[in-house]
Amino acid sequence: MKNLITKMSTQAFVIMVTIILFIIMYAAGCVVYADKNFTNIQVFFNLFISNAGLIIISASMTMVMISGGIDISVGSQVALVCMMMCDLVMNKHVPTAAAIAICIVYGIVYGIYAGVMVAYLNIQPFIVGLSGMFFARGMTAVINTGMLSIADKTFDVLAKTKIMIPIDFLAKVNKRGMKIYPNLYPSVIIAFLVLVIMFVMLKYTKFGRAIYAIGGNEQSALLMGLNVKKTKFLVYLLDGAIVALGSVVYCMNTCGGFVAQAQGLEMDAIAAAVIGGTSLMGGVGNVFGTLLGVMTKATIEALVSFQGSLSSWWAKIIIATLLAFFIILQSIITRIKAKARD
């Protein structure tokens, strides 16, 4: 075991554990809830459909965490962007495409604010995120203290077009004799596109590698000649834009906006990233690991939900335990490796 650990990188080992855990849980669900159709491929797809927005946002959070920072404002940003979309499209009659563009511009503006604060004014990212969180949550209420929803043709096409997967053996015939093919939504496709782009960016571009370097050891990065300030600034700027995009995708799932929306989403994103192998100390992380983290969390929720009588608070407790497990695991591995080095 120890040899395996020292040979593999921490990253790889943790992701391996995550994958194994996910497979075990999902398999257990399939076995135990076979009579409740857990084996239906739609259940697997639902993991993505319901969490498309979270996937994008967690990926962006991963990027920020790799650089050594954190952005706890994302939940509130989601609420604000959803409310903005609803307000712009329905009340101000702005065409959907323009509304999305406006939201992303807002994301960029916020990203600039966060970037300047963290990179140039050297303010703790946590506090910057906190101020952003309060600001966004409050502004959501300023736009409208009630609830809004979107019912616009263009938006509906984006949000509600079901992409059927017409593979017969995957289809199910339900009690009413209806044949239901598994389906996906465009939001999932967008999420995967973003994931791939981010993966490529982080692994294969100079910018991506600079992020890892800065997260790993800022002083060394500076000495190496990397423009730390500019890189950090760009990280937060990108984060703002991607979170805005993720919020729009989230909006496609809910088609509505209200003040308390997505409360606590930032913690979900952080938990997903940590379960996926990202370290809050920076320098370590992988967006596909984060994807696995989101899927794991979703699987746990599905398992509790399919049980049918357990309080849903159990899902939170199990996720917390898993979180504890991964955190401690990472710590142990780091220790083993440090010892192996000496």
Binding site: I70, F126, M267, I270, A271, V274, S279, L280, M281, W313, W314, K316, I317, I319, A320, T321, L323, A324, I327, I328, Q330, S331, T334
Partner: peptide, 19 residues
Amino acid sequence: LDIQPMVATLILFTAGRGM
């Protein structure tokens, strides 16, 4: 265990209310 405070306290943050 040298774990980042925010992550360490995230555990009870998630589980505390459930308990």
